[in-house]
């Protein structure tokens, strides 16, 4: 699937997650956030940068780890990205849907 974000054509999967992180830009992030009724502020960006860092380091991402990250506590994470914060934040950050361990 393709979508238009910030004047660019971006490859996304059926659920709207970017297929290639390399296509992500801060402007793309802003527009995906808008689709999810979120206006990005400084605290959002702290979380998004943290998530992207973990993704680049190939580390698993979970709500528990975010809570212990010293970047944000879980309560604030929910306030920043209401309703399924891990998924919404990952989508905005341009990284794949977090895989839950079996």
């Amino acid at each position: 699937m393709e979508k238009q974000y910030a004047g660019k054509t971006i490859q996304v999967n059926e659920e709207g997650y970017l297929k290639n992180f390399s296509e992500w830009t801060p402007e793309v992030g802003e527009e995906i956030a808008k689709e999810n009724n979120i206006t990005l502020g400084a605290r959002h960006w702290d979380v998004l940068k943290y998530l992207q860092g973990e993704f680049k380091a190939e580390l698993p991402i979970s709500i528990r780890k975010i809570g212990k990250s010293n970047v944000v506590d879980i309560k604030e994470f929910y306030a920043l990205f209401p309703q399924g914060p891990l998924k919404t934040a990952s989508k905005i950050a341009g990284i794949p849907k977090p895989a839950s361990c079996l």
Binding site: S62, R64, S100, C101, L102
Partner: peptide
Amino acid sequence: TEMPIKCP
């Protein structure tokens, strides 16, 4: 509660 769990 949270994943991972034994025998999901």
